Simulated scan of single mutants.
Amino acid sequence: MTGLPLPVRLLGRPRVGGLVVPFISYEHAGAALFGSVDPRRHAAALLRRLCQICGQRLDERVCLIVRPMDVRAGIAPEPGLHPECLAYTAKACPMLSGTATHYRTSAASIRHPAGRPCGDPDCPCPRIAPDEQHEIRSGRPADDFDSWMIRAENYRIKKDPQRPERLLGVDLDIPVLRIRPLRRAPRPRLDSEQAELLRTALRSLGL
């Protein structure tokens, strides 16, 4: 969607194809890969309490984008957002709006203007390895997503106890003001034979 109204905070952000490039996205030579993460900006956003979309300081109310796996781990890997930045992102991002059915397969598709892939030894740009979360998600079906609204006083960053310099994300063992669904991924339908097998298995378990 390219005709979405922009919050005032996002008016100064660069755009590609009419869409705002998030602050934490990987950018190089005027190109940006939506869905990828620049690990330097990601760390800066977490440590300095910056919005992952506009790059400005977070306010009293902070929104988090949370998946079921994040709840189980107790950590949201992405930095927080302003409520208005989340509202824009929920409509503009294909993953959150439901347009995309799978995650992108690689962060290596950004190319230097001369045609060389970013990371080429002859390219003068800083080489940045794809972030760990991107590699884990690569090519997988889309997840469910919820938005959590919390108070800034409860916005806490968790670090790897074995490697304190490694930031894991935002602690989810916190009071939550509000939870709203952002996207529900489609579930595969069972054919009649699969459904009967499932019913038989459940009956054998006494369910």
Rank of each mutant, 00 (worst) to 15 (best):
T2E: 12
G3A: 15
L4S: 09
R9V: 10
R9W: 02
L10G: 04
L11C: 09
P22V: 06
P22M: 05
F23L: 06
I24H: 00
S25Q: 05
E27W: 02
E27S: 13
A32M: 06
R40P: 00
R40E: 09
R40C: 03
R40T: 05
A43E: 10
A44L: 04
L47P: 00
R48E: 02
R48D: 00
R49W: 03
Q52F: 02
I53V: 15
Q56L: 14
L64K: 02
I65T: 07
I65H: 00
P68S: 10
R72G: 07
P79L: 00
G80Q: 00
G80F: 01
E84Q: 12
L86T: 04
A87L: 11
Y88R: 06
K91V: 10
C93A: 11
S97T: 05
G98W: 05
A100T: 08
A100V: 08
A100W: 04
Y103H: 15
Y103P: 00
S106T: 15
A107M: 13
A108K: 11
S109I: 14
I110F: 03
A114D: 15
C118T: 06
C118G: 03
G119P: 04
D120R: 01
D120I: 02
P121C: 10
P121Q: 05
C123I: 04
P124M: 05
P126R: 08
Q133E: 14
Q133N: 13
Q133L: 14
S138N: 12
D143L: 13
F145Q: 01
D146K: 05
S147I: 08
I150K: 01
I150Y: 03
E153C: 09
K158D: 10
R163M: 10
L168V: 01
G169T: 02
V170K: 02
V170L: 10
L172Y: 03
R178D: 12
R180D: 13
L182V: 06
L182C: 02
A185Q: 05
P186A: 07
P186D: 07
R187I: 14
R189W: 04
Q194F: 04
A195N: 09
L198K: 11
R199F: 07
A201L: 11
G206N: 09
